Amino acid sequence: MAKKAVVLFNLGGPDGPAAVEPFLFNLFYDPAIIRLPTPLRWLVAKLISRRRAPVAQEIYAFLGGSSPILPQTEAQAEALENKLNEGGTDSYKTFICMRYWHPFAADVAQEVKNWAPDDVILLPLYPQFSSTTSASSIKEWQEAAKKIGLDTPTAGLCCYPTMAGLISAYADLIAPKLAEVSGKPARLLFSAHGLPQKIVDQGDPYQWQVERTAEKVVEKMGLENLDWKVCYQSRVGPMKWLEPSTETEIHRAGEDGISLVIVPIAFVSEHSETLVELDIEYAKLAKEVGVDEYHRVNTVGVHADFIAGLAAMVEKLSDPSIRSESGMRICPSGYKDCLMLAS
Rank of each mutant, 00 (worst) to 15 (best):
L195C: 05
Q207V: 13
R50H: 14
I121D: 00
A311C: 00
D30H: 06
E270F: 02
G156D: 04
L275W: 08
G65Y: 10
A56C: 12
L278K: 09
G65A: 08
D119K: 14
L278D: 08
Y126T: 00
T246F: 05
Y170T: 06
L178N: 06
D151I: 12
R212Y: 05
G257E: 04
I280E: 11
L150R: 09
Q207Y: 02
E281C: 09
E273S: 07
A19Y: 01
D337G: 04
A56N: 03
L278N: 11
D15K: 13
E74I: 07
L341G: 14
V217D: 08
L260Y: 14
E247V: 13
T274S: 06
A53F: 03
I121L: 11
W241V: 02
G13W: 07
A45K: 01
V291L: 11
I34Q: 08
V300D: 06
S130T: 13
T274M: 08
K4V: 15
R212M: 01
L157I: 08
D119R: 14
K287Q: 14
L223K: 09
L11R: 04
A311I: 02
K3M: 01
C231M: 11
I167R: 01
H303M: 05
A304G: 05
V302D: 03
T133Y: 04
M239L: 14
Y282I: 05
L63K: 04
S321A: 14
A286Q: 13
L157Q: 11
P320R: 08
Y100N: 15
A283H: 10
G290P: 08
E140I: 14
C159H: 10
A304N: 00
P31G: 05
A79F: 01
E273M: 06
V44D: 01
Y232M: 00
P127K: 05
G194F: 09
G309P: 00
A286L: 13
M328H: 15
S326I: 11
T248A: 14
P22S: 11
P332W: 04
I258L: 10
S333D: 14
S66I: 01
C97K: 07
V6P: 01
P71D: 04
T152H: 00
H303K: 03
H271D: 02
W208A: 09
E273F: 12
V314E: 00
L8D: 07
A171Q: 06
S91P: 00
A53V: 07
A266E: 05
V217C: 07
A109F: 04
R323D: 03
M313A: 06
S326D: 03
V6I: 09
P22G: 12
G290A: 05
V230C: 12
I174D: 09
L24M: 08
M98R: 02
G301H: 13
H251Q: 13
G65S: 09
Y126N: 02
I167T: 14
S191I: 08
S66Y: 15
A171L: 08
S245Y: 12
T38K: 14
D118S: 12
F95P: 03
K46S: 15
A283V: 14
D337K: 13
S131L: 09
Q202H: 10
H271M: 09
P17K: 07
Y60C: 05
